[in-house]
Design a protein around this nucleic acid. Structure first.
Lengths: 240, 240
DNA sequence: TTGTGTTATTCTTATACAAGAGTTATTGCA
DNA sequence: TGCAATAACTCTTGTATAAGAATAACACAA
């Protein structure tokens, strides 16, 4: 029977925190089944209802999935959910479109000031830069530059072809789960370097998206700068 | 004691639906106090815990606010929350900025095809068009065109100056609560008409935002087309 | 293969008690 | 009497527990 040392609010919150810690630490890895409500209750010396409340809260935060009759499982970010959730480009009719990879380059280089600040690294620390160009219906529609701390993602450069969705890879191969992403959007003239890659005229307006992908423990795990062509597509948001 | 006719899942869900209906109908208006957990339990012949679960779910959906020792109240959309939530323009440092109204015109006209479709109206039905230009730090930053069904918002044209945030007005004066808004974003060259209003050069890239504001009953209550200048500001989103 | 029981899991409901907030009554004193 | 401090009470939501129902998966026999 485990102990809930430290008076930290209600019991269910303490259980929530304890299980959360076990998920963050990797002891409970994505896809694994959690102890049942009764087991958890026994472990922390609380009632099943209290354990249940903690699990419900974890489900609400998106960290676990529950299925009646089966059990509770640590959430896994699948390619589908990851793409649907974090890739916001949609067709005019609102339909989801799956972008195809056109080109990809990975290199190691020092971070610039903005990237180092975003990732919480020292100036000019080593980072991996993943540069990708994507197309939809054979039309090139976006260029993405992802920047990652080499310490957190060792050997990324030598993996060869990366999957369409990067976040499931982060989770599977590096134990890093992306919980949310904050984005800053601007309408700008396409920068020269990007215009070359996408074969655009100089005066094309594009959407610039600056993303900070944040892990479950709260730190910025990836800094991404993207350029979207929004002639036939749009970026969809739902405010609620 | 009220009856929960119609077998619709668990008891707490039936209570949730019943109370929801009372809110949508206006019987429970924004700001009003709901019956206590015990009263509600008595009304629907369930236990206090079951009524409590229904209320918690309503709170989760954002329809009510609960305060220990005080009671449960139908949520009111204040100017602050409305602005913060539905106005996504932020400064580079992420700080919220309050836009000031520069000009405003309201007129009645027939809806165009796109507006009629969005609002679920017949072609060329009468609508109010609210056209507003806003500034931040004395710099003009956006033009918004809101289109509303004249039937749902009678007398809007003759109200004189409208408040900075429209949604609290919809709620207070017309009993229409906006629950969420779906937006479609595109980077475009500023249209000529808009460029004139904002005093911009022809080739300025701006962000075009097409919004459908949706009421608690699910229908589109407002169609809005906005143009944002994103030279010194950005549109902030959090994906989770 | 099909059906039936068994077991393990989450889900639903009910009850009791704790804690916060506001109102009313009472007390003490000038 | 007037008034303020305070105590008691009542109404509210929050927390914890327990017991039974619903669901899913599996084993095993016909």
């Amino acid at each position: 029977m485990d102990d809930l040392s430290g008076p930290a609010g209600p019991l269910y919150q303490q259980v929530y925190d304890a299980v959360m810690a076990r998920i963050v630490s990797g002891e409970l890895a994505p896809g694994m089944m959690l102890p049942s409500e009764f087991d958890l209750a026994a472990q922390y010396a609380v009632s099943q209802g209290t354990a249940r409340k903690a699990l419900s809260k974890l489900e609400l935060s998106g960290l676990v999935e529950r299925h009646q009759g089966k059990g509770t499982f640590v959430a896994t970010t699948t390619d589908e959910t990851s793409l649907f959730h974090f890739f916001r480009l949609r067709q005019s009719d609102g339909a989801q479109v799956i972008p195809q990879l056109v080109s990809e380059t990975v290199r190691k280089r020092p971070a610039n000031a903005r990237e180092a600040a975003a990732l919480g690294l020292a100036a000019r620390a080593s980072v991996f830069e993943v540069m990708r160009v994507r197309s939809i219906n054979d039309a090139v529609v976006c260029a993405e530059q992802s920047v990652l701390d080499v310490v957190k993602f060792p050997g990324l450069k030598d993996r060869g072809g990366l999957p369409n969705a990067l976040y499931p890879l982060y989770q599977r191969s590096y134990g890093i789960t992306i919980a949310r992403a904050d984005e800053q959007l601007r309408a700008v003239m396409v920068p020269e370097a990007v215009g070359g890659m996408l074969a655009l005229a100089d005066n094309t307006p594009v959407m610039e998206v600056e993303r900070r992908a944040i892990g479950i423990s709260g730190g910025v795990m990836e800094f991404r700068l993207s350029y979207y062509l929004t002639q036939n597509l749009h970026y969809a948001v739902s405010l609620r």
